[in-house]
Deep mutational scan, measured.
Amino acid sequence: MDTYKLILNGKTLKGETTTEAVDAATAEKVFKHYANEHGVHGHWTYDPETKTFTSTE
C-alpha cells in the first residue's frame, strides 16, 4: 500500500488529508467521497510523481 495525499482548495473548506491505498484509482474514490461529504465539488488533478490529488473550486 502507498500513501496518497489530497489538497482541498474549496470555497468553504481548505486543507489536506492522506489515505493508504493499493493504487491511485482507489485513493481517488476515497478522496472524492471525502470531498463530496464536505461539500467540495471542484476540478480534480493528480500528480503521479508525488501521489497528490488536488481539488479546486
Score class of each variant (00 low, 15 high):
28 E>N: 04
33 H>E: 15
9 N>Q: 09
35 A>R: 02
8 L>S: 02
56 T>F: 09
23 D>S: 07
22 V>D: 07
5 K>T: 14
30 V>P: 00
50 T>P: 00
50 T>H: 06
44 W>G: 01
6 L>Q: 01
13 L>G: 08
7 I>H: 04
28 E>T: 03
55 S>T: 15
47 D>E: 08
9 N>E: 09
2 D>L: 11
37 E>D: 10
41 H>Y: 14
9 N>K: 10
16 E>W: 13
13 L>K: 09
4 Y>P: 02
48 P>C: 08
21 A>E: 03
4 Y>D: 02
46 Y>R: 00
24 A>H: 07
43 H>P: 06
24 A>E: 07
17 T>Y: 15
14 K>A: 08
17 T>W: 15
40 V>P: 02
9 N>A: 08
27 A>V: 01
46 Y>W: 03
33 H>I: 14
41 H>S: 10
36 N>Y: 14
1 M>W: 13
6 L>T: 02
50 T>E: 06
29 K>E: 11
10 G>H: 14
30 V>N: 06
32 K>V: 08
39 G>T: 03
24 A>G: 04
14 K>N: 09
11 K>T: 14
16 E>G: 07
40 V>F: 15
35 A>D: 01
27 A>C: 02
32 K>P: 01
6 L>S: 01
11 K>S: 12
51 K>H: 07
55 S>N: 13
8 L>W: 11
17 T>S: 09
44 W>A: 01
27 A>L: 01
30 V>W: 14
47 D>L: 04
21 A>W: 02
18 T>K: 07
28 E>P: 00
39 G>M: 07
6 L>K: 00
11 K>P: 14
4 Y>A: 02
25 A>Q: 11
44 W>N: 01
57 E>A: 05
17 T>D: 02
18 T>F: 14
9 N>I: 15
51 K>N: 06
39 G>N: 10
40 V>Y: 11
33 H>R: 14
19 T>I: 15
22 V>Y: 13
35 A>N: 02
53 F>Y: 06
29 K>F: 08
38 H>P: 01
4 Y>S: 02
21 A>I: 01
11 K>V: 15
11 K>A: 14
45 T>P: 01
52 T>L: 04
49 E>D: 14
41 H>K: 11
49 E>K: 12
49 E>L: 13
57 E>W: 06
56 T>N: 09
8 L>C: 08
15 G>T: 15
15 G>N: 10
56 T>P: 03
11 K>D: 10
25 A>P: 08
41 H>F: 14
44 W>R: 00
12 T>Q: 10
16 E>P: 03
14 K>D: 05
39 G>C: 06
15 G>Q: 14
53 F>L: 00
31 F>V: 01
27 A>W: 01
5 K>D: 03
17 T>Q: 08
57 E>D: 08
3 T>Y: 06
2 D>H: 15
34 Y>H: 04
1 M>C: 11
8 L>V: 08
47 D>R: 03
27 A>K: 00
2 D>Y: 14
26 T>I: 07
36 N>F: 14
23 D>V: 01
52 T>F: 02
50 T>L: 07
21 A>V: 03
38 H>E: 05
55 S>C: 15
40 V>I: 11
31 F>Q: 01
26 T>P: 01
39 G>D: 07
19 T>L: 13
46 Y>L: 02
28 E>S: 06
18 T>G: 03
53 F>Q: 00
26 T>N: 08
44 W>E: 01
12 T>H: 14
30 V>E: 09
4 Y>L: 02
